[in-house]
Each structure stands twice: as C-alpha cells, then as structure tokens.
C-alpha cells in the first residue's frame, strides 16, 4: 500500500496508506483529510478537490486530460504549474510517498 502525504492548511502533514486504484481524492475522503471537498464525488465536475503536487512527483503522473485542464482554470485557489484535481490521480505502486498540498480554499 503506497503512502500518500497530505500537507494540510495548517502546515501539518497527514500520511495515509492508499489503496492502489483508488484516486488521491477518494483516499483523502476515506481518511477524513480536511480541505479536499470533492463536491461532485469525483466526476470531474466541480474543481473542489484541487491539490498542489510536490514537484518531484509531477512528472510521474499521467498529465491532465482536456476536461481536467479546463477545470483547473476554475479552481478557487490560484492555479499553479503543479495544480491537479486529486479525483483524477489514480494511486499506483510507483506513487509511493506522493506528497500533495491542500490549497487555502476549494469554494
């Protein structure tokens, strides 16, 4: 089980064991990680599961598709080069240690 680290708004880190195949958003919801709202439940409709991915991992992820790319333009917190929607990142064994930072606000 890969470990995912979530850096919360208050600067603390929550580290959780993720199931391979689940999304980074689902993993956060399952472990009650605060700051990932996921209002649409992961259907890539709402941009409320925005995270900043630690630079070292950006290149290991499948790049955003057109829908995600468009939605990232509508996030409540500023879009940066490492912005992703966590519902679109599937956990794989290669993502052991993946670190994402929760933004200031999702809505």
């Amino acid at each position: 089980m890969p470990t995912i680290h979530y850096i919360l708004k208050d600067g603390t880190t929550r580290s959780v064991d993720a199931k391979v195949g689940a999304s980074v958003m689902e993993t956060a919801i399952h472990h009650n990680v605060r700051g990932i709202d996921a209002e649409c439940g992961g259907s890539c409709s709402c941009a409320t599961c925005h995270v900043y991915v630690e630079e070292a991992f950006v290149g290991k992820l499948v790049p955003p598709d057109e829908m995600e790319d468009e939605l990232l333009d509508g996030t409540a917190s500023e879009r940066k080069s490492n912005s992703r929607l966590s519902c679109q990142i599937a956990v794989t064994a290669e993502l052991e240690g993946l670190t994402v930072r929760v933004p200031e606000t999702q809505v």
Partner: peptide, 12 residues
C-alpha cells in the same frame, strides 16, 4: 456541455 471551464467562469 463538455465545457467545464466555461461553467466555472459562468458561476462567477
């Protein structure tokens, strides 16, 4: 329809 960014902008 299939324009999620425009939807987000429209809400604003």
């Amino acid at each position: 329809v299939n324009r999620p960014a425009e939807h987000m902008q429209a809400r604003k």
